[in-house]
Design a protein around this nucleic acid. Structure first.
Lengths: 115, 115
DNA sequence: TAAATATACATAGCAGGGGGAGATATAGCG
DNA sequence: CGCTATATCTCCCCCTGCTATGTATATTTA
């Protein structure tokens, strides 16, 4: 992704990707475009970031892949869909995310009384 | 820090530390304890994580340090306080955080229509 | 006195994840 | 043919938080 909050993506990328796939099964290239469109260009994922995430998720049993070869010819796509295991993982990641947001939001609030 | 959301800390640590110092000037060891107490033990920062952050913030001109030598004897403390530059940076980081939270929260919602 | 614990700062080296950049391949357009 | 879009894959770099350790002071405990 581009921009100043580059580091923020860390720890949330797996959650984001799993959420996208949970909504509708899709393939790498489309996941990148989906994220780009739904964030109005604020998150532009790179292949070098996404594919390793997909492999990790698949290795962990959270998603499954199937190759789709379009009629006769065309570029084959590797579709991913979420597994029951992945749904549990997604629920867990969502909870962790919301908990962490509450924690940090509380931490960074409060006026300065320093001098 | 400990726990599953280890990676989430990344990108927010600078924001958290700067927030603590903005509220009240303090020193490394106390910052660790402040964070631990205010998060009820959920974020236990390590020295190896904190000190480099403090040095980065100081190099960037966001905070200033002053050594305090307690009366006669005692362990000297290095107090940090936020600079005007740091207050701008803090405002910026807070904004980025809130924006990113909105972005991700929107992204990861939505029911699954997959099969 | 000695050992253990808490306070307090510093740093070398490691691990893991996201990015940059390029390779590979298909396909449409001028 | 070159350019662009689609689509996947992979090597290597960089950054950041963690592990581990070293240094030093002070208090408690035996």
């Amino acid at each position: 992704m581009t921009g100043p909050d580059k580091e923020l993506l860390r720890g949330t990328l797996e959650l984001i990707v799993l959420s996208i796939i949970a909504r509708q099964r899709s393939y790498g290239y489309s996941i990148i475009n989906t994220i780009k469109q739904q964030t109005e260009g604020r998150i532009e994922l790179k292949e070098g970031s996404l594919y390793p995430v997909l492999y990790r998720l698949e290795d962990a049993g959270a998603i499954e892949s199937v190759w789709h070869h379009p009629e006769g010819r065309g570029v084959p796509r590797k579709y991913y869909r979420i597994t029951p295991e992945g749904k549990k993982r997604l629920a867990q990641l969502r909870k962790e995310w919301h908990d962490y947001v509450r924690l940090v939001t509380a931490l960074i609030e409060g006026g300065s009384k320093d001098g």
